[in-house]
Simulated assay, not measured.
Amino acid sequence: MPWPFCVLNLLKRSQEMNTIRNFYASEIEEFKVVLRTVYRIIYEYQEDRTQKNENKMREAIQTTIPYLMLFKEHIPVYKQKYIELLENQYQLKPYDLIICFDRAIYELHARVKTEKFHELPWSKELRDLLNERQEISNSGFTGSKVAVAFITSGTGAYLGIVEGPACVVLDRDDLLKLKQGDILVTPMTDPDFISVAHLLSGLITDRGGLLCHAAILARELNLPCIVGCRDATQQIKDGEWIQMDSRTGIVMRLMS
Results as ranks from 00 to 15, higher is better:
M1I: 07
P2E: 15
N9T: 06
L11M: 08
K12S: 06
S14L: 12
Q15R: 10
Q15F: 14
N22Q: 14
E27Q: 10
E27T: 11
V33L: 08
V34C: 04
Y43E: 06
R49G: 03
N53A: 03
N53E: 06
E54V: 02
M57D: 11
E59Y: 00
L68G: 13
E73A: 13
H74Y: 15
H74E: 07
I75E: 13
Q80I: 07
Y82D: 09
Y82H: 12
E84C: 06
L85Q: 13
Q89S: 12
Y90I: 01
Y95K: 11
Y95S: 09
Y106H: 15
E107F: 07
E107Y: 08
R111S: 09
T114A: 05
E119K: 15
R133S: 10
R133C: 05
Q134E: 14
Q134L: 13
N138M: 03
G140W: 05
G143M: 09
S153C: 11
Y158R: 14
Y158C: 06
D173F: 10
D182P: 00
T189N: 05
D190N: 11
D190R: 04
F193C: 00
V196K: 08
S201F: 09
S201I: 09
I204Y: 02
I204G: 07
T205C: 04
R207I: 04
H213N: 05
A214C: 01
L217V: 01
A218F: 06
A218C: 07
L221T: 00
N222L: 04
Q235E: 15
E240L: 03
I242E: 02
I242D: 00
D245L: 01
S246K: 02
S246L: 01
M255Y: 13
